[in-house]
Computed example of a mutant assay.
Amino acid sequence: MIDYEKGDIVIIELKAGEIYDGILISKSAERISICSTVEYPSGKLFENICNFSIKEINTSRILSDKKDNGNNKVVNKINLNIQEYKHLTNLINSFKLIKQMDVRFYDAVQEIETAESIGIDAKGCQIGRFYKISYLIISVWNQVFVFDMVNLDQMAFNSGLQLIFENEFILKVCHNSQKLNDCLLHNYGVKMKNVFDVLLADFTLQERHKEKDPRHRSIEDLIIEYLNLPSCFVDKITDEEWTKRPLPITYQEMIATRCSFLLFLKNILQKKMNESLNKITDMFYCMATDTLNPTVEETILPKRLLQML
């Protein structure tokens, strides 16, 4: 089993809830020392070497592109490569806040409507139709947009967002789309189409793998399960608190976190859901390519492959 090595990128989650990453300088039974340290979700960079006592650390994980080889397995490895992780953390810290109907709003709509998949998170609608959205967060692959719906309200949907939400060619990625759809339909007259719900995708995989007690898991659970990242990356702020104006700085730092993870989770879940189909596809074309003189009968999908679906 391969342990952490000097120069590895390490993600440290403290018992107090803070998260840091940095380049490993040293690791002992008493402490971990890292440099080029960044705190999340604030993105604050520390120039000096940071030392963390083992007693104050809840978990530590390694970010590595090393490949597991036979019996050599990388310890507690993040399920993202270095490039993906850096892209994710940049998304969290570089969101655009839109408070009024100006050129920034229309530029955002134009960028969102050209995306194939978008992540959607809404603050303030976790009990459905009984409250309106406070902040609507939409992520494309390289940017997160935060719409202040207290200021924009219905005008945001009338000016482009409704067409995006109802566009059947744009995939909307959510966690628990039921509450969001209820709020959108009854408060804004918007019916979201072409939805990939990571909650339902995970539940389907649990059922497929015959889990003893399949359950609806929170986005924090999914981040741990599929990305092996600390759940403290995402906010645990209540709907009522998101209505505050002006929004506290600490809340602003957390606002884009959930939405930033959605497209990453979708990619992993889609891949897992397609594993059996991909396996059958490989076997199907090998029936022809591995045969010297394939006949029509040999290239027809046999019942034994259909049973794997």
Rank of each mutant, 00 (worst) to 15 (best):
Q143R: 10
L309H: 08
H209T: 09
I300E: 09
S231Y: 15
Y285W: 15
T59S: 12
Q206D: 07
L229P: 08
L97I: 11
E253T: 14
L262A: 11
S276C: 08
S53P: 00
Y188I: 12
K244L: 13
F130L: 09
L309V: 09
K96S: 13
I11T: 04
Y188D: 07
H87L: 01
V234G: 01
I82M: 03
I25D: 06
Y4C: 02
T37F: 03
F233P: 04
E220Q: 15
M283W: 05
A29Y: 06
K132F: 08
K172F: 08
K179E: 14
I11Q: 01
G22Y: 02
R258I: 14
N167T: 00
L205F: 09
L227A: 11
F147L: 10
V74E: 14
I138Q: 02
G70I: 15
G160H: 02
T114S: 06
A201G: 10
I219N: 06
R304N: 12
I49H: 10
I164P: 02
K271E: 06
N267Q: 13
Q162K: 11
F147R: 05
D3K: 11
I249F: 13
L263C: 08
R129I: 00
E113L: 01
V198S: 10
R245W: 06
P230E: 02
K279A: 09
I127C: 00
G128H: 07
K123S: 07
F261G: 05
M149E: 06
A201V: 12
K66P: 05
D102E: 07
Y131K: 14
E84I: 07
D213E: 14
F165W: 00
T291D: 06
N48I: 13
F169A: 02
K191A: 12
R215C: 12
K172W: 08
S26Q: 04
I23W: 04
E297I: 11
L163N: 06
K244V: 15
C259A: 06
N278R: 05
A256W: 15
L152C: 08
I62L: 13
Y131G: 00
K272S: 05
V173I: 13
R217W: 14
S64F: 12
